[in-house]
Amino acid sequence: MSEFKHIQTAHCENGVTVNLLKQQGLDFMTEPLAFGIGSGLFYIHIPFLKVNGGPAISFRSMPGAIFSRTCKSLDVKVERKKFRSHEAAQLYLDQKVDDGIAVGCPVGVYNLLYFPKEYRFHFNAYNLIVYGRDGNDYLVSDPVMETTTRLSKEALEKVRFAKGALAPKGHLYYPVQARPITEEVLRKGIVRGINRNVRDMLRIPTKIVGVRGINHTASKVRKWREQHGERTAGLFLGQIVRMQEEIGTGGGGFRFIYAAFLEQASEILGDDRLLGISEQFTKAGDLWRDSALQMAGIYKGRITAQKDFDDCADIMNAISAAEKQAFQDLGKLNLR
């Protein structure tokens, strides 16, 4: 294996995908490509699940989906292991890194010691790469960090066996020797990623998912002030903004990554029509940021009337319409 080269990205799972695939010689891989081929753009207002009594929303596809879809589309084989025993999990990891294989690990954030305390919640769908060890320390490449970092044996064990929803259970994964990717395979992967994303955002028949999901949340936002009072409703809005923008989630940010993906895709596919649609996603991303600003006005206590909540919901309805249009246009291109 060549020397490990750390690449910082906006989102952890994109980053793990990019870093691990580059390691396998896929030099062309970028974060937007990984995100787009893996059909990462999504929206779901998760039903029955409450986080601190408030809404649980995800702006991206299921944890693990970006990595596995991207690898599958590019015909890269993936090796995965789950463990019950902490010892077995560590021994296997040691063996891999000693063989010079960098591996991806889902971990819990709560005990991730190099994170500032403010960011450490019980959130388990986080990913990092372990690429070596040195004495009692593991060498860690966390894609949202500017540089590589380290975790002690004990600290790593703790985060690999964090408990709660989506418990990682010592899971690890890595791509096995990839074949050289031809232009043809890459094009097919891009087209497939786009078409799957169109389906996921437009055609899943439930009101909580995709562009309809955004409207579903908007209709809830309209009712929160009455139902929960200004303070709690404000906290809920803050929660949306955190899920949307914070490290490891990045909703508004995802729209820009997707726009960047379409820009790169237009070059690779030689199709200028994608540039126009990229612009539509940039607008959607800008609208998400407008909505966050409006919500911040409320939870900063500056504006707290029902009209202000309605304004938030109106922006979300506009986002839903914008993304619906963009995905419909994408679908109409009939890429093959």
């Binding site: 960011y119 803050g238 955190r242 919500m295």
Partner: peptide, 24 residues
């Protein structure tokens, strides 16, 4: 008008949301 990456030190909109969550 082309995409590239930039580095941000943070956004007040997010910091306040995070801060409120901690107060709660």
């Amino acid at each position: 008008g082309k995409y590239e990456t930039g580095l941000s030190e943070g956004w007040d909109v997010k910091s306040v949301a995070l801060n409120n969550a901690w107060e709660e």
